[in-house]
Every structure is written in C-alpha cells, then in structure tokens.
Write a protein that binds this DNA or RNA. Sequence first.
DNA 1: ACAAAAGTGTTCGAACTACACCCATGG
DNA 2: CCATGGGTGTAGTTCGAACACTTTTGT
Lengths: 244, 244
Amino acid sequence: MSKIIPNISIDCVIFGFDFKQLNVLLVERKLIDKDSKQVLIDDWTLVGYHIYEDEDMDTAAARILRKISGIEDIYLEQFYTFGDENRIKNEKDKLWHKHHNKHFKSRVVTVGYYSLIDNTKVKLSLSDRNVKWFAIDDLPELGFDHKKILDKALDSLRDKLRNQPIGFELLPEKFTISQMQRLYEEILGTRFDRRNFRKKVLQMKYIIPLDEKQTGVKHKAAQLFAFSREVYEKTKTERFDFTI
Amino acid sequence: MSKIIPNISIDCVIFGFDFKQLNVLLVERKLIDKDSKQVLIDDWTLVGYHIYEDEDMDTAAARILRKISGIEDIYLEQFYTFGDENRIKNEKDKLWHKHHNKHFKSRVVTVGYYSLIDNTKVKLSLSDRNVKWFAIDDLPELGFDHKKILDKALDSLRDKLRNQPIGFELLPEKFTISQMQRLYEEILGTRFDRRNFRKKVLQMKYIIPLDEKQTGVKHKAAQLFAFSREVYEKTKTERFDFTI
DNA sequence: ACAAAAGTGTTCGAACTACACCCATGG
DNA sequence: CCATGGGTGTAGTTCGAACACTTTTGT
C-alpha cells in the first residue's frame, strides 16, 4: 500500500433524507487515556481521512466513505477546501492529532465533499468506528472545524438544489411528487403550495411518469416518477437569471 | 521566512474585462538550457505558486497574485481544488518541476481562485516574470492542466453572474448600465435588449444611481451607478428557482 | 366511516418580451 | 451636421401565487 499524504485530507458531508427530516452522517471521536482510563475526548466528526500518494481525490473521497461507513457508489461533489493556518486550534483537536498523526505538526488542508442520499435505503456497515445519522437540527458537539464545514456543505447543497433543477445524483431512482416536495421544503427551509409545486414539476420534461405506484402506504397510492438525465441534457439551455 | 509547503499550491485565474472582451492574466513559463542555450520550454501558465506553512490560503492567494503581477486588494473567490494523481503528466511539466521543485516528486494539489477586474484600471508591475493579458478566445498554449482550471473558473464565474445578481466584488465601483450589460453579454455569451436590461437593473434596489456622469466619451455621457452591499444584504431573500 | 394523502383548475397580478424614436455630446 | 451611444413607454404574453373540494385507500 502506498503512503498517506499527511497534510491533505478529505471530509465527506453525507446528508441523508428520510422524507421526514434532513440528517447527516457523523463518526464518533473517542480517546481514552490508557493508564487512567479517563475519557479525554468523546465527540463527533465528519467522515474523513487522509489521501494516499497515488490516489485521485475523488477516488479517495469514495474510499474513505466506504471504509468508514460501508456506503458505496454514491455521487460525491467537491464543494470547498479548508486550509486556514489555524483551523485546528483547540486543545481536544491538538490532543487527537498528537495521538493519530504523530510525526506531523503542520496544518492539514482538507477538501470537502458532500452528497445527499436516501438514508432509509442505506445500511451502515459496522467498522471499528461508531457511525450514526444525526438530525441536522439536533447535532452533537463536533470536533475540529467540522461545524463550519458542515454549514458550508449545506449552503452548497441548497445552491445546487435551487439552481440545478434537481440534484439528479441526489435523489432515489423512483419518487413521488410529494416526496420531492418534502425534500425541497426540508432542505431549503420553505413551504410550497402543493398544486403549484406539482404543476411546476410536471412541466419539466426530464421528469418521467412511471407506470407504477407507491406501495405500503395506508392512503391513496401516489404515482412514481423518475429523472431522465438524457432528456435533461437535451433540454438544458442557457439561462439569464440574475434575479433578486 | 517560513517554509513553503511543497505539495500544495494556489492558482489564480484573473479575468479582466475592458468593456470590449474578456481577458485572462497569464505568466510566461520559460526554461532555457544553461549549456546549449536551447529553449526547452516557452509557454504560459496561470498566476500560481506554493503556500507557506504559516499562511492562510486566502492570504496566500492574495500574496501570490501581488508578488507576480503587482495586483492588490481584489476579491478572490476559491472555486475548486485540483488534485488528480496524474494532473501533471507531460514532459514539459515534469521538466519544469525538476528545475523548480527539486526535492519533491509527489503530486501537487492546487487550489483555484478566480476574480474579475477592470483590466483597464490595473497596472501590471514588472516582476522578474513576464505577465500579460490574453483575450479569452485567443489563448496561447497553456502549461500543466491550466486550460482545464481556466475552463472551470469560467464556469464558476458564469454561475456566479447568473445566480448571484451581480458579483459585487467583481465589478468596478462606478459603472454605467451599458457597461454592465456588456459585461453580462460578454461573459455569458448572450445578447439582451437594451431597454429591458435597463428596466431589470433599475428594479434592483441595491443598484444606486449616483449624481455623476461618465467623462471622456464622445457621445452623451451616461449616468454612473454603484452597488450597495448593505441594501443587497437587507433585501436578499430565499428564492425557489429550479427553472430550466 | 374516517383518517390521510392524492389529484385537479381558475383567476389575478407581476414579470418578461418585443419593438422605435428622440436626445446629448464631441469631433 | 453627423456619428455614437444614452434614454424612454407600451402592448401582448407568459409565469407564478393564491386558493378548496373530491377521490382513493387502509384501518
């Protein structure tokens, strides 16, 4: 195996939507003193690790996510790189570093990736780390500058949702209109009129009605839809839209 | 002075607009063999260099730009980080590296920043490097993967222009409506109706008419306008806009 | 039968498009 | 006096916002 690059890391902000609320995947960071058995650190961080010398960054992001959480084959989008000289400054972070990155004391630059997946469809494989979903509005204490990174990822996700019709990569294959509406409302923090939303969505030619209905619901089953990337690429045009 | 970090660099894509066409700032990359006097490399690159160990990335970007071009105090926006394992693969690039980054053979990750300025207002200070503006549609051969970086920067600039009313940081302090229109047309590659454009712009409350007119033109002098970031921040609202 | 969400149309105002003529200035 | 860009209004159309009742299904 190749060597890791000690001053470059990747952090993945994995958003999970369960059609109720927006969640984010975090990893427990725990450090216990060998002698005194005292818990020195016990908080949470994003899914992250260093990259290897012979590895592309996108590949590294996918590997790190797979290794830590078991999640595979999802679209990851790079959104920002965090490299302030003092980004890791508090005592816990320094302590953690001393234990895990021993022969290295300089600043670590981290490249942020995010994704949005249906977290009801994903099984987290148990690695040696404790990995859990947290509701975005009920987060535990985060280590390093990961709160800042998470906030920036959420901004990027919102921008993407607002400006790129839909994150194709960011939704399950089949969905109902109101699932889609809930996703938009939850992430953008807004409410839309059901009828207008439906009208708007149905205008989009790349949203294809399927001959299939929802199952397992205790009310009228809704029709399922799918995205067609092909149609999307064809109908994509330049827009002039410097509204506000 | 502090040490440089050999595997992290910054590249600045400085777009310059002269109210006629879009330009980009490039630096000549020349390597001459000491003995044979043969020109081994003679092409152009973006404005870039490594960061120092005790320096924030934003600070480094500003410093690198200042050192190489003399340009100061402009807004630089980070847009993407390029770190493919083989991003520098051709012979010229390897040769250059051998000469300038001697004791280092691993991949260099580069963080991209861009800006847009009025290049008629900027004096390039002569450093030891040859620095020049090039029209965006008449570029010379670019070294490394800098063509790819430039293209991505242009995409980001277009996105910003389309989605964030105007890049406040990206325009001169005082401007006429038709200068603004030319900027939009040139960068987005579209044409707008003069009257409709003006109408749209004048609706924006954060675009403030000044008691001042253009000077030095051989036709009717146009009124000057300025942005008010203050008003912008106040009137900014959430939009739902997944148009296509 | 009732609870829960699906599905459906119309009206009103705002915003966008297309379009042509006169004005001020410098050379 | 002419060339160059500045400044202006209106009509038609499209788009988005607001709004309530009926249908289907599982329990």
